[in-house]
């Protein structure tokens, strides 16, 4: 995966016209897949490149894997009991596989999927669930859509069944089916939810283990000794990506690395960044960053506002507003 600086430059220049499948074939009302939006991104990215691209950067294979300082990073994550197994844990978490790149079922468009996921984000926030639960729920949804057909009117039911199962895996207190039905405004009954749960488990054959991208982000940020503000912004970028159908095709580690790299470049002017990790090359992160940046620039678009509004709250430092402001400074406002 080594990319010479020249080749990287070439890639960087070529990525504005890079087709974004999810955005383009979804018929998104926000025509943001134009080069205009992606091009401005080059600035921070390019600015980050000279200072942080040592010669060793392109020799990823030669790098120690896991990287040095991992035990300390785990300590900052409260996992210092795991020093012995730090390397294995890092590898098993970061080596999480992406789902196969397949189209959504005919009945379900990327827009419809985004609408359901947006609703799931709201339910997730309302119930005060853990971050991993959301990523697992969306992962289950995407996995199901790859193995079985679903009728459009059952998409919301499928989504909430995914959240229900994700809670059973991740949470220590689980929401009542009745309260989930209430949040669904009565569009499905508890009995339907339980039937959907059985169908989901049966179709996925209990393959629910997913060390999601949030865990990867935590590890990467601890390794890079990122500031809390950068981590918060990266968490926001990462969470925006759950709305994108194509995000399921990105490995969790690469997805987290892209969110972190984008956050670092956006907040570059605030300075004080830790060491560059270089676990992924620019070419690998290339397709993901603009997708997240576009989503951040979009703001509270109808049907896709939940993540933006969630991160606009004061307890999250209104980071989504900051992100939109900083990103739009480097590129023209959306038409």
């Amino acid at each position: 995966m080594s990319v010479s600086p020249a080749a990287r430059e070439e890639l960087r220049l070529s990525f504005p016209p890079h087709p974004i499948p999810g955005a383009s074939d979804s018929g998104a009302s926000l025509s943001l897949q134009s080069p205009v939006k992606s091009a401005p991104l080059e600035k921070p990215v390019a600015a980050a490149t000279p200072g942080t691209a040592p010669a060793g950067r392109s020799q990823r294979a030669a790098q120690p894997w896991p990287p040095p300082g991992l035990a300390e990073a785990l300590t900052t994550l409260g996992l210092d009991g795991e020093r012995e197994y730090a390397g294995d844990i890092f590898v098993s978490v970061m080596a999480g596989q992406a789902l196969p790149k397949t189209d959504l079922p005919r009945a379900v468009t990327a827009e419809m999927r985004a609408l359901v996921v947006d609703w799931l984000v709201q339910v997730h926030e309302y119930l005060g669930l853990a971050g991993d639960t959301l990523y697992l729920a969306v992962h289950l949804l995407d996995s199901y859509l790859r193995v079985a057909p679903v009728r459009l009117r059952h998409l919301q039911l499928l989504g909430v069944a995914c959240l229900f199962v994700a809670c059973k895996v991740e949470e220590s207190t689980r929401p009542e089916p009745a309260s989930l039905c209430l949040l669904g405004a009565g569009s499905f009954s508890p009995a339907q939810l339980l039937r959907a749960e059985r169908r989901l488990l049966s179709r996925l054959n209990f393959q629910l283990y997913y060390p999601g991208p949030l865990l990867c982000l935590g590890l990467l940020a601890a390794l890079a000794r990122s500031r809390p503000r950068v981590v918060l912004l990266a968490t926001y970028f990462l969470e925006l990506s759950v709305l994108e159908a194509e995000a399921a095709g990105w490995e969790p580690g690469r997805r987290a690395a892209a969110a972190l790299a984008l956050a670092q470049s956006v907040l570059l002017h605030e300075g004080g960044e830790g060491p560059e990790l270089g676990l992924y090359s620019k070419a690998e992160l290339g397709p993901i960053e603009p997708c997240m940046a576009r989503a951040a620039l979009r703001g509270p678009a109808p049907g896709r506002a939940a993540v933006f509004l969630k991160y606009a709250r004061p307890q999250r430092q209104c980071i989504s507003l900051t992100a939109a402001r900083l990103l739009s400074r480097t590129c023209p406002a959306p038409p």
Binding site: K168, E197, L201, F206, Y209
Partner: peptide
């Protein structure tokens, strides 16, 4: 529905 212990154990 399905007990959470069963879900965790199987997965």
């Amino acid at each position: 529905g399905v007990p959470f212990t069963a879900i965790r154990e199987a997965s």
